[in-house]
Amino acid sequence: MRVESITELIGNTPLVGIHALSPKPSVKIYAKLDGQNPTGSVKDRVAWNMMRKAEEDGILRSGDTFLEPTSGNTGIALAMLASLRGYHMKAVLPDNVSPERRQLLEMFGAEVIPSPGEEGSNGAVRMAQRLVAKHGYVFLNQYENAANVDAHYSGTGPEIWKDCPEITGFVAGLGTGGTLTGVGRYLKERNGRIKVIAAEPPTGELVQGLRSLDDGYIPPIFDRDVLDSKVVVRPAPSVAWSRRLLRECGIFAGLSSGAALSAAIRYAERLDEGVLVVFFPDGGWKYLSTGAWTGDAAEAEERLSQIIYF
C-alpha cells in the first residue's frame, strides 16, 4: 500500500474473527478494529468528514479557530487534522478522562480547556456552547453534525456489509450515537432483520454534578429508533472482556470495546445461531494508566468508575 497523505488511511478497517470468545459455535463473532485508524480511533472518520463538509460549506477557512467538546477521541482526531490543514483547535475536555487522552490532544497541538468532570460530557457540551456564543469560534459539534452519522452511513456501514453480508447483529458502544445511527440505518436498509444493539457505561456516580435529570443530554444526531436493545455494561465486565480479548485473541482494544463485547456475548447467549459484528472504536493504548491489563482487576475497575472511557 502506498498513499500520499495520512488522511487516505482513514477507514477501511479490518474485520477479525473472535469466535473463540463466542458462548456457542453456532454464533460467529467478528470485531471491527477501528483502532487501526491513523490517530487510533474511529473518530478519524467523523473528524475528517465533518472537516471536509465544513470546508466545502465555507464554514472553515485556513487560519480559523474551531472549538469542540470531546471526551478525547474526536478531539485527538480533529487536532491531528487541524495541524495538517492549518487550523487552530480548542478542545473542551472533562477533567476526568485518562491522562493519555489529554496528552495526545496536546501533542497534536490542541489547546485543552478543562470542564468539570462531575458534569461528564454533558458539562463539556454546555461549556463549549457558551464559549462559542461568546467568542464566535467555528463549531463543528459532533453531537449535532449530520456529517458524523454520514461518516458511518457512507463508510463504516458499507465496509461491514461488503466484508460480512451474512451479518445478523451489530453491537457498538453509545457515545454520540453516530456509529449506531449511521451503521444501523445502512445495515437495516440492506436487511431489515439485522438487529442493532447498544452498550453504554454506567453514568450514575460519574455525573453527580448534574443538578437534575433535565440536565441529561441526548445527542440530536442519535436516532433512538434504530436500536433494538440497549444495555448498560459496568467496569468489571468491560475489564474482564478486554483481558480475554488480549489473551485469547491477541487484540489490544480499549475498554469501551470490552463493554461492547460484553453486550455482544450477552446477546449471543440468547441466539440459536447468528453472525455478530462488534465495533471496537479504539485500541488499549490510551488506557494503560488504568492498569486494566496489568494490575489488579478490582483496582482497575475502581479507577474506571472515576473516569470517562466512552
Binding site: 473518530k43 470531546t70 471526551s71 477521541n73 474526536t74 461528564g120 460530557s121 454533558n122 457540551v125 459532533q142 453531537y143 458502544g173 453509545l174 457515545g175 454520540t176 450515537g177 453516530g178 457505561p201 454506567p202 453514568t203 450514575g204 460519574l206 455525573v207 448534574l210 435529570l213 440536565d215 441529561g216 443530554y217 441526548i218 445527542p219 433512538r224 436500536l227 433494538d228 436493545s229 440497549k230 444495555v231 448498560v232 455494561v233 459496568r234 469501551s256 470517562i308 466512552f310
Partner: peptide, 30 residues
Amino acid sequence: DDEDIRYLDKFETSVSNGSQVVIMPAVAGG
C-alpha cells in the same frame, strides 16, 4: 437487570424476584 426498558416493554416490562431496576441520567460520550 441492565437492559434499557425502552427496548423491552417500557413501563409494562415485567419484573421478577431478584430483579434490579437502575435509573440513570442520559449522558453522551465521544
